[in-house]
C-alpha cells in the first residue's frame, strides 16, 4: 500500500514536471511576441529589444526554464510580461474565485448526478429511466458554451430573471454573489452531470444482477434499503472514480464558462493572457490546471483502492 502510494506520488511529480516543460516550450513556439504587441506604434526593433531585456527574455530558453522551475519550488510564479506585476497575488484572487465556482458546481452536481443515476437504475427501463438517459445523452453532446448562451438567452435576455454577467468583486458578500453565480453553476452542473449519471446507473445495474442482491430481495428488504445498504457501497468504486475525474473536467471546462460570463477567475485570466501573449501568466495558469488535473486523478486512483478491498489488501 505505502509502496504503491509512493510510486503513484513519484509518477505524479514526473507528470507535473513534464507538463511544466510542455507548457514552457509550447509558449516559446507561439508566433508573435508580447513586446511588439504591447508597444504597438512604438515597436521599433530597439524598443522591443529593450522591453524583452527588461523582462529577462534575452536569456536562452533553457536557462529561463530552469530559473522558472527554481522559482516555482520556492512558490514564486514569476512576473507578468505585459505589466511586470507579480503573478502570485494576481492569481490568488482569481484562483479563489475559480474554486468558489467549481466548489459550488461540484456541491450541486455530485449529489444531483449520483441521485439521479441511482433513481434511473432503480426504475430501470421505465419512462423515467429513458428520459434521464436521453437528457444525459443530449447534455453530454452539448458544448458548455452553447448551453451557456442558451441559459443567457432564456433566463437573462427573455425573462430578465438572472444577470448574464457574473463579475464578482472582493467587496461583495457571499449573498451578493449568489445570484451572479446561478447561471455559471447551472451551466457547469448540466454539462458535467451526464457522465456521472450514466456511470452511476450502469454500475448499480451491474451489481443489481448479482446473487447477494437477489438474496436481499428474497429476504423481503425494501428496494431503497437494498440499494443504499448493499448495492451503492459495492458500486462506489467506479462511481467515485468517475466523480473525481469529472471534477477535473469541470475545472478545465471553467475556462469557457468564465470567459462567457466574464467571471473573474483563472480561466478568464488565462484567455485574457493568451490574447496578449503574456506567456508567463499563461504558463502559470496552465501549470495550476495541470496540477489540479493530476492531483484529482491521483485521488481517483486512491479512492478506487480504498473502496475496493481486493485492491486494498493486494499489496
Amino acid at each position: 500500500m505505502t509502496k504503491y502510494l509512493l510510486k503513484r506520488l513519484f509518477a505524479g511529480v514526473l507528470l507535473v514536471l513534464g507538463a511544466s516543460a510542455i507548457l514552457f516550450f509550447a509558449g516559446e513556439l507561439l508566433p508573435g511576441d508580447f513586446a511588439s504587441r504591447m508597444l504597438g506604434s512604438q515597436a521599433t526593433p530597439e524598443a522591443v529589444e529593450a522591453l524583452r531585456q527588461s523582462r529577462g527574455l534575452d536569456q536562452p530558453a533553457l536557462t529561463r526554464y530552469l530559473m522558472w522551475l527554481g522559482g516555482l519550488l520556492q512558490g514564486d510564479l514569476g512576473v507578468s510580461l505585459t505589466n511586470g506585476r507579480e503573478i502570485g497575488p494576481l492569481i490568488a484572487t482569481r484562483l479563489s474565485n475559480t474554486l468558489t465556482l467549481a466548489g459550488l458546481a461540484a456541491l450541486v452536481a455530485v449529489p444531483f448526478a449520483v441521485g439521479l443515476g441511482t433513481l434511473a437504475a432503480m426504475y430501470r427501463n421505465t419512462w423515467f429511466d429513458r428520459l434521464v438517459l436521453m437528457l444525459s445523452m443530449v447534455t453530454v453532446a452539448t458544448p458548455e458554451f452553447f448551453f451557456a448562451y442558451l441559459a443567457i438567452a432564456f433566463f437573462a435576455v427573455q425573462l430578465h430573471l438572472l444577470p448574464s454577467i457574473s463579475i464578482v468583486t472582493s467587496d461583495m458578500s457571499f449573498a451578493d454573489k449568489v445570484p451572479l453565480l446561478i447561471l455559471p453553476v447551472l451551466t457547469l452542473v448540466v454539462t458535467t452531470s451526464a457522465h456521472m449519471i450514466r456511470l452511476t446507473r450502469a454500475s448499480l445495474i451491474s451489481v443489481m444482477d448479482s446473487e447477494y442482491a437477489g438474496t436481499a430481495m428474497l429476504k423481503g428488504l425494501p428496494q431503497w434499503k437494498i440499494v443504499l445498504r448493499h448495492l451503492l457501497p459495492n458500486a462506489m468504486s467506479p462511481i467515485a472514480a468517475v466523480v473525481v475525474l469529472n471534477l477535473a473536467d469541470l475545472i478545465v471546462g471553467l475556462i469557457i464558462v468564465e470567459a462567457i460570463f466574464a467571471y473573474p477567475g483563472m480561466g478568464q485570466l488565462m484567455v485574457d493572457s493568451v490574447s496578449k501573449q503574456d506567456v508567463t501568466v499563461v504558463q502559470a495558469c496552465g501549470l495550476i490546471f495541470a496540477v489540479t488535473y493530476i492531483v484529482l486523478n491521483m485521488i481517483a486512483d486512491l479512492l478506487a483502492i480504498l473502496l475496493n478491498p481486493r485492491l486494498r489488501y493486494k499489496s
Binding site: Y149, I152, A156, V157, I165, I260, A262
Partner: peptide, 19 residues
C-alpha cells in the same frame, strides 16, 4: 466599466439591461 470581451455576452448584457 465592466470588462466584457465575448461578443455574444456583450450583446446579451445590453439586452438584459446589465449595461
Amino acid at each position: 466599466f465592466l470588462v466584457l470581451n465575448d461578443p455574444q455576452a456583450r450583446l446579451a448584457a445590453l439586452q438584459s439591461g446589465q449595461i
